[in-house]
Design a protein around this nucleic acid. Structure first.
Length: 347
DNA sequence: TACACGTGGAG
DNA sequence: TCTCCAAGTGT
């Protein structure tokens, strides 16, 4: 088939040299695929090197503490990936004798692995003709075939999966999958695709109809919620502070932070001191000062966090049990890590 | 099923 | 500054 052959030919000449392309070890491929979900190669690369060197086998990963895994994941975002990765490593180590499942059907049963990742591992490591459909594949196929079904609709997801599956080179499914993804990432890019030098230009529907900029179609935009965070940075005379784990649902599950007072608007010092949360945290008279005069806006995919860090220097506090110099051992969101760095530098 | 889940780079 | 979005998955 022309489409597949052209892509594979392009790939043989243009593919990137990436560390996970030198192996077919399913454990390493798995690590790379999880890290690269919704993440650019440039951002994930150093984490891949760090993980493979610290955890050379699935047993090493399984035996680590979740907190250690999260600390190593710090800065990559979407932290449920790290928690699920660790969870599944324990399943593989303890229930599957360390042997990675070898078929799409078995691979997709693992937590954190969906259709894309199961297809990627099955095709790359076990030569199973399972087509991957990631953001690149949606873009390449929607443009080349001129498909305007929204890629994030139920209909679109099904339609593109069937199409990709019909196109896969069953003799070399892993190569085909990586070819179409690399082609999307490097050539058929979201913005300014290189149509002038495209090997598929003579048969691309989007190019012919000048629809390249409109495709793929994605429906509905996400809503951004505003939240107002006040972190209480305690520093006692014996150099201790409070740092707490975020539990339950929501952002940054399993990561640590300073005691948080959240409100529905930006608070000044008087407002803050008057809240019940503040009185509960500091029953005695306490002096506080605002560290960042301008509020920090930390942007997440679905939330904007308007953040203030309040410094509390006090003789002692009954719950302040963490030594300052030990803070660096805890996994924290980038928002907190950035503060720590600014605070240390200023100090 | 629609929505939540991080961070950083590009234009 | 703002918008998009990058090798998706869980609930």
């Amino acid at each position: 088939m022309k489409f597949s052959n052209t892509l594979i030919y392009w790939y043989l000449q243009n593919n990137r040299e990436l560390p996970w392309r030198k192996t077919k070890n399913p454990y390493f491929i798995w690590l790379s695929e999880i890290m690269l979900q919704q993440t650019r190669v440039a951002q994930g690369l150093s984490y891949y090197l760090k993980f493979t060197s610290s955890f050379p086998t699935v047993f090493d990963l399984a035996n680590a503490d979740e907190s250690t895994v999260l600390k190593m994941w710090q800065g990559l975002g979407y932290y449920s990936r790290a928690r699920n990765l660790h969870y599944s490593a324990k399943v593989i180590a303890n229930e599957l004798n360390g042997e990675f499942p070898s078929t799409y059907k078995e691979i997709i049963k693992l937590k954190g692995i969906g259709d894309y990742t199961a297809s990627a591992i099955a095709s790359i490591c076990f030569n199973e003709p399972a087509a991957v459909v990631d953001g690149n594949v949606y873009r390449v196929l929607s443009r080349y075939y001129g498909i305007n079904t929204p890629i994030n609709s139920t209909k679109g997801i099904k339609e593109f999966k069937i199409l990709a599956q019909s196109l896969i080179d069953t003799k070399q499914p892993g190569t085909f999958n990586q070819a179409i993804m690399d082609f999307g990432a490097l050539h058929c890019k979201p913005q300014n695709p290189l149509c002038d030098s495209c090997p598929l230009a003579d048969s691309c529907v989007a190019l012919e109809k000048k629809l390249t900029k409109e495709l793929p179609i994605k429906e509905k935009k996400i809503k951004i919620k505003k939240r107002f965070f006040n972190f209480m940075v305690i520093k006692t005379q014996d150099n201790k502070t409070i740092i707490e784990e975020r539990k339950g649902k929501g952002i940054w599950q399993g990561l640590y932070q300073f005691p948080l007072i959240e409100s529905n608007k930006n608070l000044n010092k008087e407002d803050l001191i008057a809240t019940d949360d503040f009185k509960n945290l500091f029953p005695d008279e306490t002096t506080i000062s605002l560290f960042n005069q301008k509020e920090i806006v930390h942007k997440l995919s679905h939330q904007h966090l308007y953040t203030q860090f309040w410094i509390v220097e006090t003789n002692k506090h009954k719950n302040a049990t963490t030594l300052w110099q030990n803070i660096q051992d805890f996994p924290v969101p980038i928002l907190i890590a950035n503060f720590l760095e600014a605070f240390d530098v200023k100090k």
